[in-house]
């Protein structure tokens, strides 16, 4: 009985881990090239506000957190485009509002808030079947974006104005990217936690950047590293009974340092 429970729950966590690792490391390449890692952090904290509201309303936090975080991402992009403020300032403002709202929502609840802690630090125990469905649908959309959107997002990351001269609708594409990013962050939060999500998005892409000479290779390598580190991290966290998010991040960090070594060796050889 316990075995079956373990197996299905482990299977669920593993599947979620692979999919979330895939999506984060895929969107991560754009975050790294567009210097948006603060955006990742900001959206994770917006997700906290949404989760807290969900807990207060006694519903599944996911259904509140997703629209809440999408709204925050649209808000950040709008503030950036319509005012002269840098995106870091817009993110900082929405970041604070979301966390302040989250704290107030949780304080209104007044009962045991273990759920909220699971979101802060991440936990595989909290991965539900509904999370899995959302993650699965989002993964399919993410894969489809590889045909079409990838080359436009890449072009815009390379040179926004040049992409504009080739009639690419850079602003519309930004909103699509940021919306998908927002949902990815919400589904990643259960596994790795709000605090670590930004690093989770960025480290595989940063490692890939160190060893890849083209953006296409960077994307492929980042996805491979993201998926592998999720698998190794989850297995390690299960075997050694460690928190899943923190373990995955440390595996990613190890890969990152190996990438630095590989880069040093290849540069020395090419001299």
């Amino acid at each position: 009985m316990i075995d079956v429970f373990l197996q299905t729950f482990m299977l669920r966590a593993m599947l979620a881990g692979i999919l979330v690792g895939f999506m984060s490391s895929y969107f991560g390449v754009f975050i790294v090239q567009r210097r948006m890692s603060f955006m990742g952090s900001g959206l994770a904290h917006a997700a906290f506000g949404g989760v807290a509201l969900g807990i207060l309303l006694n519903t599944e936090p996911l259904w509140i957190a997703i629209p809440f975080t999408i709204l925050a991402s649209i808000g950040i992009t709008l503030l950036r485009d319509k005012t002269k403020l840098g995106s870091d300032t817009s993110i900082g403002i929405l970041f604070a509002i979301s966390v302040a709202l989250g704290i107030i929502f949780l304080s209104l609840k007044r009962s045991y808030t273990a759920d909220a802690f699971a979101y802060l630090f991440g936990s595989i125990l909290s991965v539900q079947t509904s999370d899995l469905y959302v993650t699965l649908i989002l993964s399919v959309i993410t894969m489809l974006s590889f045909f079409g959107f990838w080359s436009r997002w890449a072009y815009t990351s390379f040179d926004r104005e040049l992409a504009g001269t080739d009639r690419i609708k850079v602003t519309r594409d930004d909103y699509i990217l940021n919306t998908l990013l927002a949902i990815t962050i919400v589904v990643s939060v259960k596994l790795v936690g709000i605090i670590l999500v930004a690093a989770f998005l960025v480290i595989p892409a940063a490692s890939a950047r160190l060893v890849a000479g083209t953006f296409f290779r960077m994307t492929i390598i980042s996805i491979i590293l993201g998926v592998i580190s999720s698998i190794i991290g989850l297995i390690a966290s299960y075997i050694f009974d460690l928190p899943s998010g923190a373990t995955i991040i440390l595996v990613q960090a190890a890969i990152f340092f190996i990438s630095i070594l590989i880069r040093r060796i290849t540069i020395r050889e090419s001299l």
Binding site: F158, D159, E161, A212
Partner: peptide, 29 residues
């Protein structure tokens, strides 16, 4: 363009940039 607004940290090869002239999109392979 007069001022090159490209992201200098973006991993790219000259052949890729020139290919955007041909296809108006960033190349995969």
């Amino acid at each position: 363009p007069q001022i090159k607004t490209l992201d200098r940290t973006f991993p790219a090869l000259p052949i890729e940039l020139v290919s955007t002239g041909l296809n108006a999109k960033w190349p995969g392979r």
